[in-house]
Computed example of a mutant assay.
Amino acid sequence: MTTDPPTPTTPAPRASPAVRLPLTLVAGLGLLALCAALSLAIGSRTIPLDTVVEALTGGQHGGDADVVTGLRVPRTLIGLAVGAALGVAGAVAQGVTRNPLASPVTLGINAGASFAVVAAIHTFELTRPVEYVWFAFAGAAVAAVAAYAMSRSGGDLDPVRLALGGTVLTVVLTSWTSALMLASHRTLDEARFWLAGSVAGRHLDTLVPVLPFLLLGLVASFAVAPSLNALALGDESAQSLGVPVARVRMVGGLAVVLLAGSAVAVAGPVAFIGLAAPHLVRPLLGNDHRLLLPGCLIVGPVLLLTADVLGRMVARPSELEVGIVTAFLGAPLLAVLARRVAR
């Protein structure tokens, strides 16, 4: 008795980007809405969601409603802004440098902004984040230029040297930051909470001054997105396609500085959001930066709000700063990504 050979099966065709993008963005926006709702409801004590809705619509005042509108709404909005800035900054940094491990942290940009802010606190006795936003931008810019200068090899950008240069900058600047804090108890008291990376206790007057720079960084990022696709082919190939490589790198680098500087000025140096967000989006939307950046704009806040909510839950009635939670969760991720890149 003979049997027919099995009919070969073909894999189901993958949905086109025109279909994947709306579906993925809708799912991501739903997840982001859930994270925002949890951020408004969960804290040292849990507030029912119906109370949260009534507080937001003006149907209830006093007690839990004041906690929602006065503390948790600003904290959630700042988390949304900072997460979006870091997620997009990481994607642009990886595109500009052609290095999958690039991020505001690994390039030394966060460390540069942090050192500049602590130096300003130490020298000028600043006390509010709104006062040292300019120092955060300046430190981020100097660190980015220094990392880029150390990565040049024969006139081209060397991604490996860039990662090594960023690591060296981070170690050096972190040591200098620690030295400044140890030299002054006032600087230590003022900066240690901010350096942990936190959105707790922040008010909207902290976010408003940096919002124009954050928005400008987002506009610049989306403007260079098509050129980043060509840049992934290499400088010579991109130039043969008519892409002005130097200009794209300058605009992309400026966007990363604006986004990372804004985030650090508001929330301190929050690690790994910029590194993780692009790697979580790429399996869903691919490597096209025109799709990648909108995905990171959503995934970045999802990661930050999730880490912030976890920090509130694990140490009740106290809490862990979001920067501590992201560092704890991001260290294994960095090891996995480094192993994957090495392969």
Score class of each variant (00 low, 15 high):
residue 174 T to Y: 07
residue 174 T to F: 06
residue 144 A to P: 00
residue 214 L to M: 14
residue 139 G to W: 00
residue 145 V to F: 04
residue 164 L to W: 09
residue 159 P to G: 09
residue 224 V to A: 11
residue 143 A to H: 03
residue 219 V to T: 10
residue 242 G to T: 04
residue 221 S to I: 11
residue 143 A to W: 03
residue 165 G to A: 04
residue 202 R to C: 08
residue 207 L to V: 02
residue 139 G to L: 01
residue 198 S to Q: 12
residue 165 G to H: 02
residue 194 W to A: 07
residue 196 A to S: 15
residue 154 G to V: 07
residue 210 V to A: 03
residue 158 D to C: 11
residue 229 N to V: 07
residue 191 A to W: 14
residue 156 D to I: 12
residue 228 L to S: 12
residue 242 G to V: 03
residue 218 L to G: 10
residue 226 P to S: 05
residue 149 A to Q: 15
residue 173 L to N: 01
residue 150 M to H: 05
residue 158 D to Q: 04
residue 245 V to G: 05
residue 245 V to Y: 00
residue 208 V to G: 12
residue 187 T to P: 07
residue 244 P to E: 01
residue 177 T to L: 07
residue 241 L to T: 06
residue 167 T to K: 06
residue 186 R to F: 13
residue 217 G to H: 09
residue 140 A to P: 02
residue 194 W to I: 10
residue 197 G to Q: 01
residue 181 M to L: 11
residue 163 A to K: 05
residue 182 L to G: 04
residue 214 L to D: 12
residue 144 A to C: 02
residue 178 S to C: 00
residue 167 T to V: 05
residue 185 H to Q: 15
residue 191 A to F: 12
residue 188 L to P: 14
residue 162 L to A: 00
residue 238 A to E: 02
residue 238 A to T: 02
residue 140 A to D: 01
residue 229 N to E: 08
residue 208 V to W: 13
residue 242 G to N: 13
residue 208 V to K: 08
residue 148 Y to K: 10
residue 215 L to H: 10
residue 184 S to R: 03
residue 222 F to H: 15
residue 186 R to A: 13
residue 175 S to M: 02
residue 196 A to K: 03
residue 224 V to K: 07
residue 139 G to D: 00
residue 190 E to Y: 12
residue 205 D to K: 09
residue 205 D to H: 15
residue 235 D to I: 01
residue 225 A to H: 05
residue 155 G to E: 11
residue 169 L to A: 07
residue 209 P to E: 15
residue 171 V to S: 05
residue 152 R to F: 06
residue 220 A to L: 13
residue 188 L to T: 06
residue 195 L to E: 14
residue 194 W to E: 04
residue 233 L to F: 08
residue 181 M to P: 11
residue 179 A to D: 05
residue 195 L to C: 05
residue 147 A to N: 03
residue 212 P to V: 06
residue 199 V to Y: 10
residue 152 R to D: 11
residue 231 L to G: 10
residue 152 R to N: 10
residue 207 L to M: 06
residue 210 V to M: 03
residue 177 T to Q: 06
residue 144 A to I: 00
residue 165 G to Q: 02
residue 184 S to A: 03
residue 226 P to H: 05
residue 171 V to K: 02
residue 184 S to E: 01
residue 180 L to I: 00
residue 143 A to V: 02
residue 186 R to G: 15
residue 224 V to F: 11
residue 226 P to W: 07
residue 205 D to C: 09
residue 148 Y to W: 15
residue 236 E to C: 01
residue 150 M to R: 10
residue 193 F to I: 15
residue 237 S to N: 15
residue 239 Q to T: 01
residue 159 P to T: 06
residue 166 G to I: 09
residue 229 N to G: 08
residue 168 V to W: 13
residue 216 L to P: 10
residue 188 L to V: 01
residue 181 M to F: 04
residue 188 L to R: 11
residue 172 V to P: 00
residue 242 G to I: 02
residue 170 T to W: 02
residue 210 V to D: 03
residue 171 V to L: 04
residue 213 F to W: 14
residue 166 G to S: 11
residue 217 G to E: 08
residue 142 V to F: 01
residue 158 D to A: 08
residue 202 R to G: 11
residue 158 D to N: 11
residue 159 P to F: 07
